[in-house]
Design a protein around this nucleic acid. Structure first.
Lengths: 320, 320
DNA sequence: CTGTTAGCGCCTTCAC
DNA sequence: GTGAAGGCGCTAACAG
């Protein structure tokens, strides 16, 4: 019995031949170790909990799918992924403490902090991706949105734009703040003119993007910016639609740039110049770190990983 | 010990007051039953396996997110969802037999049949949604794509269109066949003219939608259809882009209709008239049936549930 | 390197 | 209505 157990446990000491024989027989009779029994002894569940800020709103569908795809690519065999919604965690003990070996938070908002600290203080292995966490005791992998947006606006400047506007993300979100700072930084270094009346607070949704863009287009012609920076692609897609409804041509009459590089930004009309957020990389590295922590390996948690986003040039920014 | 166990099991016989007391104490000391131990005895895993045809290609991201959202809405507490990719099931025993209480297949293609029958023959509770399965021993919930497409083409006819084309879905997929039949049916009953040279085989992707639409637009003006029916919204979004690149205005110069009602069809330029596929309903009913089967309740498996899709009128079909 | 023993935490008998 | 005993299938500790 023990020998069979050892045959199925990688690190166990067992003669190679014995293992081979056992595995062969197991395969023949269709034997597979029982996870419940194994877990009862080892206190493991072989399940990773993945928690999104929200499965319903806020999370762009492309973002969600891309994240899950990459998560699976990096996940060891025999681990299961339990996808969850932070807002729907009724019983922390029941859903988290007692059912998963580790937690990966795909965080989009400060609102998640309560949950994150609950996990942290309960001692469950934890990795937070997608949003910068200042607490250096939490393993964190984020994208450098500041640099990303700065690159984007630098590109706009290089195309000859001077007067620019912006439709920001949700007020208070780390990503919104960082993107705005990248915007400001590039405005300064390129000596651009931010158009006050064309800088709006949005909420990362297409609907609001459309509304805010309509407001910008309603400004007197001479007060309008030549390019509007959108907090994300969903916002830009809404903005695109506002232009369409107002008979304004993109990029001929006004230029637009997004952030994220969701799938539909490549097929929108016109296709969207944007900044690609490395969601796949973040997810992959996140899982790898989390598994390492679970296995008790040393991970340099204090090392704030920042992955560089990448400018994707398509059709929505005109050369002036 | 036994009494505590009973307190946590709904159907157990126990004095209401005793249960209340136990639950209160459990709550205070943070006790939660251990799932592994419980499962070891009851042979349950409290995990539902959800299997998609493919997490990577083929599955529209909106479709995927919508399905998962609805799945969770219908899932009993204390159940976990394990989202998987049929193509990535390496070890059936390890990933399925030994880890989940039931399987929900969100099927998009005949290719899934092998997996579906493997589940069926292993006796694991099974529900297949999203694609029609003729085997009446399998619980099946699908949408009536035939009726959906017929409604769509009827609508087109009511707008005065006569000459129509089509970019079909992936050859061989049940959904492609049914949609095509709905198309044919409406063509006959409305006495429309299907334009042979404008009926193309696509693959449900935007890329191919764009290519095929470009071919249609390359036809001599007088041979072109006034409306093209697209196999799904992704195809239509690609087609929209082909029109844009060729300077053809939708719906002024040519009309387009999609299928699915993915999120981006509401913000595309122009927004897409389409047929809403009831993915949420299918997922919800599917989980409900699956749980019932798991719990040994009687479910009328032979009853082929067909949910009606719904026409969503937006901007892409002109009135002639 | 392999086998023996004990026990993980719960639920299911069966007594009371 | 409640409690005592046994065992689910596995792995850890120990002996050989």
């Amino acid at each position: 019995m023990t020998t069979v157990s050892r045959a199925f446990n990688e690190k166990a000491i067992i003669k190679a031949e014995t293992r081979k024989n056992i595995l062969a027989i197991a395969d023949k009779i269709g034997y597979v170790p029982n996870f419940n029994a194994r877990g009862l002894v080892t206190k493991k569940k072989f399940i990773i909990g993945v928690f999104f800020s929200s499965l319903h709103d806020g999370t762009s569908t492309s973002f969600f799918s891309a994240a899950i795809g990459s998560l699976y690519d990096a996940l060891p065999d025999n681990y299961l992924l339990s996808i969850n919604d932070i807002k729907r965690v009724n019983s922390f003990e029941q859903l988290v403490q007692n059912r998963v070996d580790g937690v990966l938070v795909v965080s989009q908002s400060d609102d998640d902090d309560e949950f994150i600290y609950q996990v942290k203080s309960s001692g469950i292995p934890l990795v937070v991706i997608n949003r910068y966490i200042s607490d250096r005791e939490i393993c964190n992998i984020a994208s450098d949105d500041f640099a990303g947006l700065k690159d984007g606006v630098d590109y706009i400047a290089s195309r000859g734009h001077k007067r620019i506007g912006m439709i920001e993300g949700i007020a208070g979100f780390t990503s919104s703040v960082q993107r705005r700072q990248g915007f400001d930084q590039s405005v300064i270094s390129n000596n651009l003119t931010p158009v006050e009346a064309a800088i709006k607070i949005g909420d990362y949704s297409s609907k609001t993007g459309q509304e805010k863009m309509a407001e910008i287009l309603a400004l007197p012609k001479e007060q309008q910016p030549t390019c509007v920076v959108c907090g994300n692609d969903d916002t830009a897609i809404g903005a695109l639609r506002a232009c369409y409804l107002n008979g304004v041509k993109v990029p001929d009459d006004i230029s637009l740039i997004g952030f994220d590089d969701i799938f539909y930004s490549s097929v929108s009309i016109p296709s969207l110049t944007t900044i690609r957020k490395p969601i796949g990389q973040m997810a992959g590295l996140g899982i790898k770190d989390l598994i390492a922590i679970i296995n008790g390996e040393k991970v340099d948690i204090a090392n704030r990983v920042k992955i560089q986003p990448q400018l994707v040039v398509r059709e929505s920014v005109a050369k002036l």
